[in-house]
Simulated scan of single mutants.
Amino acid sequence: MSNNPFEFKLLVKKGESIEKSVYKFLRKAVYSGYFQPGERLVEASLAERLNVSRTPLREAIKRLETEGLVETIPNKGAAVLKSSPEEIEEMYFIAGVLEGLAAYLAVENISKENIDRMREIELILEDGECQSDYERWLKLNNEFHNIFISACNKSLLIRLLNQRTGPLGRYWYLGCTSPGMIDSCIFAHKNILEAFSERDAEAARKAVEEHLFQVGRLMRRHLGRIFVV
């Protein structure tokens, strides 16, 4: 367990099931780095700390396992999935190909309003104050990408992208500290915006693909320095 400032306190929203609340809480704990790669999720201990029964906790952990965030280790139980820097790079390469296809398909559908919103987000991402707030930066970065992914209007592709890129989210908090990562993203976003503004499908595909390939390379080098798997 890390010294992450994540607040270990379960909040159940009105009308939301305990199982869903526990799932969302554990997912955020994994994404934020509170639970480290390879760390065990001990049901008895977690149930006591969260003041819930083990049934909704067990179901939440199963759901995280289907998303590729948790694995079940024989005779040990559930643990946060531990991927090597090389595997993470490969996942970004796969995401690059899929998201590049989404960008290619989105060009004919994306609205001027959506492109304007992407441009607005990019200006915020360039701001130094935003860059010092990793959580805000990542949230806006996700919105930037999700705008054109949604515009591809291909539900199967979107679902596949969510399955492939979901596990990568937990590494972004570490990735933001990688030398050159944010500058690389901003440069790539400008190329992506230019391609969409010019309605150039092939340029959009290439810009997105190269962007995520580069993120994968930077992530592999950075994570290889800061943790051993």
Rank of each mutant, 00 (worst) to 15 (best):
V12W: 00
V12P: 00
V12G: 01
K13P: 03
K14D: 04
K14Q: 12
K14P: 02
G15A: 10
G15D: 05
G15Q: 11
E16Y: 04
E16I: 08
E16V: 13
E16K: 09
S17V: 07
S17P: 05
S17D: 07
I18E: 03
I18P: 02
E19L: 01
E19N: 03
K20F: 09
K20L: 10
S21C: 07
S21R: 05
V22S: 01
V22K: 00
V22G: 00
Y23R: 06
Y23P: 03
K24E: 14
K24S: 10
K24G: 02
F25H: 09
R27W: 12
R27G: 02
R27Q: 14
R27C: 12
R27E: 14
R27N: 14
K28N: 15
K28W: 08
K28P: 06
K28G: 13
K28R: 15
A29T: 11
A29Y: 10
V30P: 00
V30A: 11
Y31K: 08
Y31H: 09
S32R: 04
S32D: 10
G33K: 02
G33T: 02
Y34R: 13
F35R: 01
F35Q: 00
F35N: 01
F35K: 00
G38E: 04
G38P: 00
E39L: 05
E39F: 02
E39Q: 13
E39A: 12
E39G: 03
L41I: 09
L41F: 02
V42T: 09
V42R: 14
V42C: 06
V42Q: 11
V42S: 09
V42N: 15
E43F: 07
E43P: 00
E43K: 14
E43N: 09
A44C: 04
S45D: 15
L46R: 05
A47Q: 09
A47Y: 05
A47E: 07
E48N: 14
E48W: 12
R49L: 11
R49P: 03
R49D: 13
R49T: 05
R49A: 13
L50Y: 06
L50W: 08
L50T: 12
N51I: 08
N51D: 13
V52S: 06
S53W: 04
S53A: 13
S53P: 07
T55I: 13
P56W: 04
P56H: 05
L57S: 01
L57Y: 01
R58P: 01
R58I: 04
E59D: 11
E59I: 01
E59G: 02
E59R: 13
A60E: 00
A60Y: 01
A60V: 08
